[in-house]
Write a protein that binds this DNA or RNA. Sequence first.
DNA 1: ATCCCGAGGG
DNA 2: CCCTCTGGAT
Length: 210
Amino acid sequence: MPRAAVAEAFQRWQTANPTPTTELEYGNGFQLLVAVVLSAQSTDKGVNLATRRLFPVAPDAAAMATLGEAGIAEHIKTIGLYRNKAKNVAMLSRILLERHAGEVPADRGALEALPGVGRKTANVVLNTLFRQPTMAVDTHIFRVANRMGLAPGKDVLEVEKALLRRVPKDFLLDAHHWLILHGRYVCTARKPLCGQCIVRDLCEYRDKTD
DNA sequence: ATCCCGAGGG
DNA sequence: CCCTCTGGAT
């Protein structure tokens, strides 16, 4: 896809949705971090159902550490991978208390040192919470970037670099959320809704059927 | 490369 | 039934 088409696509997404953000529900930075950790291979909708039970009981790192792995697991059993996630959230809460006064660090290295936090989760937290121009490449963005020809790559790190290279600076801060929402509601995995896509004429895929 | 792992959609 | 969902650790 030509550079001008990339810019045009983001221009349209911005016009349609000037201030995009996450659909995860959270009341503070700690809750956003936990919600993103829980969102691995799960829908935001499902995560929100679980955190509506979990966060009233454990709104911060101290309360979460006190609740502990077993208590956390009880509240999030409806999400996939819940045993690993309960273990990670319990440990991560303890580490935040010990090393960061219970606060979420605005630092990639410190974030990725937390259990259950890899490059993608760190990128989401840095962007959503601290407004840094990172590009977290998840299943949606990997698919959209490759399918449209927006920023092709064989793995998520390649797509991340390609996006950082190709997305105009003015759109970089919000690009992550536009791409997520586009992938979730329009450029879906199974049957993309090309009929209601506002960037269809710029897309290398259009309504092919794979 | 494999495991983790529930809910919703087709 | 199979596929997908804002992945990470081993």
